[in-house]
């Protein structure tokens, strides 16, 4: 039981962070507005949760200009992918146990 709890990752223990990772697992990258639309959250909310994932090195942020508009896009890192997969496996195990 202890092992399973260990793998439940604190960093993903929030709806929005979980959402960001889910999208980035199946997409090569996603930009800020796409994520915002998919998750239905405000700018500030998304930015702060993205920052939290970034500081864990689970995602990387790329800022660039498309024409004159600044564009921020996110990518999951290898670490992030592994951590998220472990998290999901742990959730599934936990559910199948009960």
């Amino acid at each position: 039981m202890k092992n399973i709890i260990q793998n439940i990752n604190k960093a993903f223990d929030h709806r929005i962070r979980l959402g960001i990772m889910s999208v980035l697992m199946v997409n090569e990258s996603a930009d800020f507005s796409t994520l915002k639309e998919l998750l239905g959250v405000t700018d500030g909310n998304l930015a702060s949760h993205a920052k939290a994932l970034e500081s864990e090195n689970y995602i990387v942020v790329e800022k660039q200009f498309i024409g004159k508009k600044p564009n921020t896009s996110y990518k999951a890192t290898l670490d992030g992918r592994k951590a998220f997969q472990d998290h999901i496996n742990a959730l599934e195990k936990l559910l199948s146990k009960s």
Binding site: G19, S22, A30, L38
Partner: peptide, 21 residues
């Protein structure tokens, strides 16, 4: 608790589908 996790998994699946299809 379990109910929350189940909800989590459902949401993950939905988002994965919605963001790619």
């Amino acid at each position: 608790e379990d109910k929350n996790y189940l909800q989590d998994l459902k949401e993950i699946k939905d988002l994965m589908n919605k963001s790619t299809q």
